[in-house]
Design a protein around this nucleic acid. Sequence first.
RNA 1: CGGGGCGUAGCGCAGUCCGGUAGCGCACCUGCUUCGGGAGCAGGGGGUCGGAGGUUCAAAUCCUCUCGCCCCGACCA
Length: 491
Amino acid sequence: MADNIEQSNKEQAEGDVGEITPKSEDFSRWYIDVVRRAELADYTPVKGCMVIRPYGYGIWENTRDRLDAQLKATGHQNAYFPLFIPEGHLQREAEHVEGFAPEVAWVTHGGNNELEERLAIRPTSEAIINSLYSKWVRSWRDLPILINQWANVVRWEKVTRFFLRTTEFLWQEGHTVHATEEDAEEETLRILEIYRSLIEEDLAVPVITGLKSEGEKFAGALRTYTLEALMGDGRALQVGTSHNLGQNFSKAFNIRFEDKNQELVYAWTTSWGVTTRLIGAMVMTHGDDQGLQLPPRVAPYQVVIVPIPGKQFEETVLPAARSLRDMLATAGIRAHLDDREEHTPGWKYNEWELRGVPLRAEIGPRDVKKEQAVLVRRDNREKAFVSLETVTEVATEILESIQADLFERASTFVAANTRTAADYDSFKEIMDGPRGFIEAPWCGDEANEAQRIQEDTSATIRCLLADRKPDGGCVICGKPAKHVAIFAKAY
RNA sequence: CGGGGCGUAGCGCAGUCCGGUAGCGCACCUGCUUCGGGAGCAGGGGGUCGGAGGUUCAAAUCCUCUCGCCCCGACCA
């Protein structure tokens, strides 16, 4: 007993570093520790709902701005639809209601009066948006309609986790209407590619893209395309979906138009979304035992400047640090000067590494004399002494290099954890061991085979590789395979 | 929603078995000295022990109920 107390006192005496559980010891705890210590999010008095704190929200704003620009560039416009959906509207598409029913939150009263018709708090907006589209679409000349909405949605989840699954979350949802099936399919794939570039190039999170199986597709969709990322604990995380809804919703909501042949026909619709879950994916992909690691393109601060105190601090070092900040800002770099007097430089180094700032600039009395700054990378701690004359160019280059290296490192991990399984025994062995992605041929039998594999191994079909032809028999039953599937245990 | 664990100062915990005026480290406040990898000394402030009932002269501690969080399983971005 005395030993335990001594032990715990010793650990405490070593400082705050121990506040983050090592990644290898307990991945889930590590994730929660990083999210809280980096001040991305915190718990609230509302069960299942988190607050996204300014630093975390800054990441979301940068992510959002990048995606928004891409959507605008491809002809989409933003709009805003009601938070409430009348119950009758939600029920118009049968599969859709059934899919979402268990997780809808209902408004039953306005003030003290019970409502005649309950209002759903949107779990997604197909129902409300498509009902309006039916008013707006008359002629082929009205198409396509390309609308996106940035909004919050609510899904009554039983188990929640910061960013990955919360009762309320932020997202964008695009809803488009097209004249032909080909146009709708083209839109669905165009968005998939925009998502891929956002997630891989801006968030530096590698993904596998593909088609959802019938059992996993969006409720009411004809086809669902997905982007799947692999987390450090060997589990897959769906980070975006793009749905070709076919004519299911246009029929349910009566979206018809007169085509060039003067025929009244149903339109083709799509919907697609990414959420604040992207932040969780990024944390888990790049973080380490020191804490968070942010890709420069979405980091709220790309460079943090830590001035080193000494004699004549106010007269020499501090002005130099301010001027460095201004130079970086002028060059378009998001730079933050940490001029707090209550912390030592060493403390600040640790703090900003924990918060994932990609690049640190130190400037002290010696640097002022030499007219230089010291640049230190968060990812590998590589140090560079750089003349103030070229510091913005060098910093820009290093940030680009960090962006590329983060993606590279993550890709190496995914490649090392993507395995093929020739037979069911080796499949089970992988899922018992390191998990990760398993690529294997699959016969397409949902009811029996896909369920069996989940019961046996807890893996599910994450996606079907659209451009790959299977050779050999189904990994589960041995019957002729129809698809090459990616299996994994999902979040 | 089932199984397990945890709620004591901002954070991490001890104290609970065996009831008796709530403690430690870090953080915070004041002052001085410091500052190139989580500074030192001195002084100081802060807690309805998750919540509600109950037992008792007396409850963080015992009993009942309840809420929240975490982990593992079944459903979802």
